[in-house]
């Protein structure tokens, strides 16, 4: 991480830029979800909430979260070990969420069987 004073001064500008980006991202999420007035064209997918709204919303949230993790939490220059630990956890979270969704999505009571 930035240790010298100049570097820290420089990175303070980055922090402010990220701050701006996060604010913009937040407003954007709300606008995409609400699509008020003349911004109706922001309503992706069907009218109202649907999976596309969820995908876009999560993409924006993911980007914001990455910005926080990479810049604020200094993951852009962190030790290998930290990457292993943190991304390992995220991988196992993905396993949990993914397999749970899969289990929900494949019921043994296949409706074709009972049709």
């Amino acid at each position: 991480m930035a240790d010298s004073i100049e570097e820290i001064q420089k990175s303070k500008k980055t922090y402010l830029a990220v701050f701006g980006a996060l604010l913009v991202g937040t407003v954007l999420t709300v606008l995409v979800a609400e699509a008020p007035g003349w911004l109706y064209w922001l309503d992706v997918g069907e009218h109202g909430f649907d999976k596309w709204d969820a995908i876009v919303g999560m993409l924006i949230a993911g980007t914001k979260a990455s910005l926080v993790a990479v810049i604020f939490m200094h993951l852009n220059h962190e030790k290998k070990l930290i990457y292993w630990v943190f991304f390992g956890a995220i991988f196992f979270f993905a396993c949990l969420a993914g397999l749970l969704a899969l289990a929900k999505g494949s019921p043994i009571f296949d409706y074709l069987f009972y049709k």
Binding site: L99, A103, P107, I108, F109
Partner: peptide, 18 residues
């Protein structure tokens, strides 16, 4: 060990592919 858990749940009707 993180991805074997549901072998405790074969009888729950969880779905054959899972």
């Amino acid at each position: 060990s993180f991805i074997v858990w549901a072998h405790h749940m074969y009888m729950t009707g969880m779905g054959s592919s899972v």
